[in-house]
Design a binder for these strands. Structure first.
Length: 490
DNA sequence: CCTGACTCGC
DNA sequence: ATGCGAGTCAGGA
């Protein structure tokens, strides 16, 4: 970058979408991504918000001829700041190349089985109408079950069911609450069923068929400056929250398919965040378990509950899994208690035991929070920063939130760093082939693979993903192949 | 038009 | 009151 002319852009990915085919353009400096790396917590990275921030003046819309000079000044200022904060490597080697990958991924899109979506949509429309009728028949009241207010009115005022949880405006009717009420009145199950079906119907089955292009492909937009941790976000539609758990949800996933002559390959990092925790904390037991290829939740259960690994029951393993992920999210004993349905003191015992057995993790977390308080920010494995002003709050809850942010962001953000590098490397390796990355879902890449290239591409993607960065523990990628996304499940 | 409640994913 | 998101709807402005 030193000796060559730099082109300044604002919204490089969008600019690239006009430049098909995708020759990698270098010597670019993007003001939007630069501002994001300098502070990923901002609400907006629009020029009109960056000009006053970095140039000390507003964007005058009457004087369009001043726009380009202003972008140039902004670019030069940001470039200096990026270098001062040692963010140049992540900008030039990760985010800007990634803009190419994302631009192409958006344009390529992903194919759906439009007919199947429409068929299921029509079934679910009928079912939703039936359920509304059933709710009325069972309870004697006609309500709109999509209205929490009306559901609350029915359950608590008309049927007199116990009020379990409050919201700002009244009594909660969320899933957790309804599960507790289902034995008390048959209408509760109907409301739960309505909620599940209506959610999937309105969010996916009604929407996706409207978004297909002439080849039945759907094109999401990846937001590269949308999260405080460095993750991507996806919108219009969000393809990072396609259902997988419920039976009807699986049908959505089943509707994402490969083009004729292609298969879909799903490649997902196995427990990447826990491996990053092991790497950062250097905790001996955690590192040993991963190096020996152990089932980490089983090992954790064994440590916490004091039973040999082969005597760990499913229930104990599930508890340990919740604790493992709870640690990453900075969960309190109270939160863990609620999640596991145990007492606060019991939950505290579990957490104390965890930190006894994994003392490296305790030390790491303490030092992380100390460092965050001292520096004002936390960093990922690549030096991506996130400021944590919450740690200086006078409000206890806000400070606690700051601690959770300080714990979670380096872990979640490092996961984002790793998969972003992998995407760039995979994309470069796939040049000249027919196979293409079609989605990224935080720790998973979905690749549409030309059948003839299957063996080779599977090998490339797995290898590139597993070898982005060298951690103190192995990085493992699980791969699955299928004609639709659900089939790829490993 | 925005906010709250809710639910989908990692 | 466990981290990070997006989308839907109802209901009120």
């Amino acid at each position: 970058m030193v000796n060559s002319k730099v082109s300044y852009t604002h919204g490089f990915k969008e600019e690239l979408s006009y430049l098909f085919p995708f020759n990698e353009k270098r010597n670019v400096f993007d003001t939007e991504i630069a501002a994001y790396l300098l502070n990923p917590s901002r609400k907006s990275y629009s020029l009109s918000s960056l000009f006053p921030l970095y140039l000390g003046e507003g964007l005058s819309f009457e004087k369009e001829e001043e726009l380009l000079p202003k972008i140039l000044s902004l670019g030069r200022i940001l470039k200096k700041k990026i270098e001062e904060e040692n963010l140049d490597k992540i900008l030039y080697e990760v985010e800007l190349p990634l803009s190419h990958v994302l631009s192409e991924t958006e344009i390529v899109g992903i194919k759906v089985d439009r007919k199947k979506l429409i068929e299921i949509r029509n079934e679910l429309r009928k079912r939703v109408i039936e359920i509304v009728k059933e709710i009325s028949d069972i309870s004697g009241f006609s309500i709109n079950p999509a209205s929490p207010k009306q559901v609350s009115y029915l359950l608590f005022e008309k049927l007199g069911l116990p009020r379990i949880k409050k919201t700002k405006s009244g009594y909660s009717t969320d899933q957790e609450t309804l599960f507790k009420l289902r034995e008390l009145h048959p209408v509760v199950d109907k409301i739960l069923e309505f909620r599940e079906i209506n959610k999937l119907l309105t969010t996916y089955f009604e929407v996706l068929p409207k978004l297909v292009d002439e080849n039945d492909r759907i094109h999401t937009k990846f937001i590269q400056t949308g999260t405080a941790t460095g993750r991507l976000a996806s919108r219009e539609p969000n393809l990072q929250n396609i259902p997988i758990r419920s039976e009807i949800g699986k049908k959505v996933r089943e509707s994402f398919i490969a083009e004729d002559g292609f298969v879909l390959g799903s490649f997902d990092y196995s427990q990447i965040e826990l491996r990053i925790l092991a790497h950062f904390s250097k905790d001996e037991r955690l590192i040993k378990a991963f190096r020996e290829g152990k089932d980490i939740h089983r090992e954790t259960a064994s440590g916490i509950f004091g039973v040999p690994p082969d005597k760990v029951t499913k229930s104990l393993r599930r508890k340990a899994k919740t604790i493992n992920y709870g640690i990453i999210y900075g969960m309190s004993p109270h939160g863990l208690a609620k999640e596991l349905g145990i007492s606060d003191t019991e939950a505290k015992r579990y957490i104390d035991r965890y930190f006894e057995r994994f003392s490296g993790v305790r030390k790491f977390i303490d030092e992380l929070i100390e460092k965050a308080k001292k520096n004002g920010y936390v960093e990922t494995i690549l030096g991506r920063k996130r400021y944590v002003p919450e740690l200086n709050s006078k409000n206890h809850n806000t400070r606690k939130l700051g601690e959770r942010i300080a714990i979670n962001s380096p872990i979640q953000g490092s996961g984002a760093d790793i998969i972003k590098i992998a995407m760039v490397n995979v994309w470069r390796k796939l040049r000249g082939k027919k196979s293409r990355i079609v989605l990224q879902i935080h720790d998973e890449l979905l690749v549409e693979i030309k059948e003839e290239e299957a063996d080779e591409v599977k090998e490339i993607v797995k290898r590139e993903m597993e070898n982005t960065l060298s951690l103190d523990v192995p990085v493992i990628v699980d791969a699955g192949i299928g004609k639709n996304w659900l089939e790829c499940k490993t």
